[in-house]
Nucleic acid binder design. Sequence first.
DNA 1: TGGATGACCTACA
DNA 2: CTGTAGGCCATCC
Length: 111
Amino acid sequence: MKQDFFDRVYKIVAKIPKGKVTTYGAIAEVCGIKSSARTVGWALNGAKMSGLPCHRVVNRLGALTGKVHFGDIHLMEELLRSEGVEFDDEGCVIMRKYFWQPKKIKKSKKK
DNA sequence: TGGATGACCTACA
DNA sequence: CTGTAGGCCATCC
C-alpha cells in the first residue's frame, strides 16, 4: 500500500504547532498533490483514527469543514479556541494570524 | 481496469 | 450569494 501519502499527511499534521492551523491546500502542496486537496481530506479521514490533531486542519477559508467527520462539531472549535485560535463572525479561523505553513517533508525512502 | 467516493478548489451562470 | 460542473489525486469494490 502506498501509505507513503498518508505518512506525509500525518507527519505534517503532527507538526502543526498548537494555536496554529493549516489548510488542505497547503498540506496537499507539501505532499506533492497541490492539485488535489481532496485526497488530503480523505487521508485525514483515517488521520482522525490515527490520533492526529485534524482539528487544526481547515479549508482555505478557515472554515471547519471536517468538523462533522471529526466527531463533535463543537469539539473542533473548542479545541482550537483552547489553543488560542480565534474565529470570526463566520466561524472561520483567522487564517491571517493563525495560518501555519508546513515544511516540505523528506521523501520517504522507497519501500 | 473502471466506476464510485472523499473533510477541496476554481470557474461560471 | 447559491447552485452546478469540472478537475485533480488516492483508495475501495
